[in-house]
């Protein structure tokens, strides 16, 4: 037992005070007390018998001046709160719901691609918009990171996964295989594109081949490349494209451009008028997404160069390839 005992609470009758569960409250007794909805609160004391019939709602109490104004202000406030909730719901939609929808579309596209690959032997160039024709893997994003690549960069194609700029080269060809993808929502395939470093592998799987591209040196790495990162075995076939001819002097691993730079996916990036013959062009893979994240002010561009090419062997898939290129 505690030595201390709570003092007994006693109710002292004071005129004009009514004791309530929420604490003492002074109320004028002229009107029955009302709750928030404007209906009379049940009086205190022993519960009375409920009336036989539910009573008709009592008439609205007379408002103390400016009733219409108060109603207008309250409605205005409710509308503002509702709009705020709608904006929050849009964020939820953008960040989560679109992911669920795109995950379903991606599953369907992947199944359809497997189905087609089981029948076809080579890549067809005449692809309908939105048709998946390749897979993209980025081993540094995890061995389970993979998406189908659709033909076209319109909204419907990008909802499924990354999309191929139709006018650009196909995988493995000299020139520029351009791929766009969402960074936020819609499955966000290119969410972490800014984390790619030079020599990170980007693998493209087509019906008959794996093409291993590696991210080009960043602009700050070009000068000391031969003495620095070139010694990394992963960089074996990667070298800066900058040379005396200057055709590729703006093509670095990571570039941030304004949205109107469609020439980022030109055969020679940023040189749409280049007369470099296709035979002399590097085989590039260019990924584009929005930048900064949640904004469309700029575009984040990743340029990579083809380093290896493997014919698909029966029974050997992406996991075997990862071991082959030392990324497993």
């Amino acid at each position: 037992m505690s030595r201390y005992e709570e003092p007994e609470t006693r109710e002292i009758p004071v005129p004009g005070f009514a004791r309530r569960p929420g604490g003492p409250q002074r109320r004028p007794q002229a009107q029955p007390p009302r709750d928030a909805s404007g209906r009379p609160r049940r009086p205190q004391g022993p519960p009375r018998q409920p009336p036989a019939k539910p009573p008709v709602r009592p008439p609205e109490p007379p408002r103390s001046g400016g009733g219409a104004g108060r109603a207008a202000v309250r409605t205005f406030g409710e509308v503002l709160i509702t709009l705020g909730v709608v904006v929050l719901l849009f964020v939820v939609y953008e960040l989560y719901v679109t992911n669920l929808m795109s995950a379903q579309l991606q599953r369907e596209a992947s199944a359809a691609l497997d189905e087609r690959w089981s029948q076809e032997r080579e890549l067809h160039a005449d692809l309908a918009d939105g048709t998946a024709f390749a897979r993209i893997y980025i081993p540094s994003f995890g061995a389970d990171w993979g998406f189908t690549v659709q033909q076209g960069v319109d909204g419907a194609a990008l909802e499924v996964g990354p999309g191929h700029y139709k006018e650009t080269a196909m995988p493995g060809e000299p020139g520029n295989f351009g791929v766009a993808g969402h960074r936020v929502g819609k499955g966000a395939p290119f969410n972490d594109l800014d984390l790619l470093n030079s020599c990170d592998a980007i693998v493209i799987e087509t019906v008959d081949s794996f093409f291993v591209y590696r991210v080009l040196p960043m602009s700050g790495e070009v000068a000391g490349w031969a003495q620095g990162k070139a010694r990394d075995p992963r960089c074996a076939n990667v070298a800066p494209l900058q040379d005396e001819q200057g055709a590729y002097d703006e093509t670095f691993g990571r570039v941030i451009v304004t949205p109107d730079r469609g020439d980022a996916v030109a055969p020679v990036p940023y040189k749409p008028e280049s007369t470099l013959p296709p035979a002399s062009q590097a085989a590039l893979l260019t990924l584009t997404t929005c930048h900064p994240q949640f904004s469309d002010r700029e575009r984040l561009i990743i340029h990579s160069v083809l380093t290896n090419q493997f014919r698909k062997q029966p029974g050997a898939g992406y996991e075997e390839l990862l071991r082959e290129i030392g990324e497993a």
Partner: peptide, 18 residues
């Protein structure tokens, strides 16, 4: 939201062909 989304600038990830 699916109707309004294309009208808003959050989903432009491609570079415009010039």
């Amino acid at each position: 939201f699916p109707w309004a989304e294309p009208l808003l600038p959050f989903n432009d990830v491609a570079v415009d062909p010039s």
